[in-house]
């Protein structure tokens, strides 16, 4: 179950940073199936969530790899791939 645990951990880190960037949201509003744009994040907010999460998780992912990220699930998947 380490795989799921880790994914949850990554998602929780993403969620925590989304809430820092968009403090008007409640934690329940940030779901794995949602998109950052739908939550009201602009392009810099989205990039901020990425840099903050990479820092928290101690990882570095080339900027180009985020091009295919379209929602929170694909963001978590990409982060997972590098974990």
């Amino acid at each position: 179950m380490a795989f799921t645990m880790n994914e949850d951990e990554i998602f929780e880190t993403v969620r925590r940073n989304v809430l820092k960037v968009l403090p008007e949201l409640t934690p329940d509003e940030v779901t794995i199936d949602g998109t950052l744009s739908d939550l009201g994040a602009n392009s810099i907010d989205r990039a901020d969530v990425v840099t903050m999460t990479m820092e928290d998780l101690g990882m570095v992912i080339p900027v180009a790899e985020f091009q295919d990220v379209s929602d929170i699930r694909s963001l978590v998947d990409l982060l997972k791939k590098h974990s």
Binding site: A47, D48, T51, E55
Partner: peptide, 16 residues
């Protein structure tokens, strides 16, 4: 210091 530690972790809003 954050930049020195790891440039990838500069907050995105730094650019603004």
């Amino acid at each position: 210091p954050k930049y020195e530690d790891n440039p990838a972790h500069l907050p995105a809003r730094f650019a603004l």
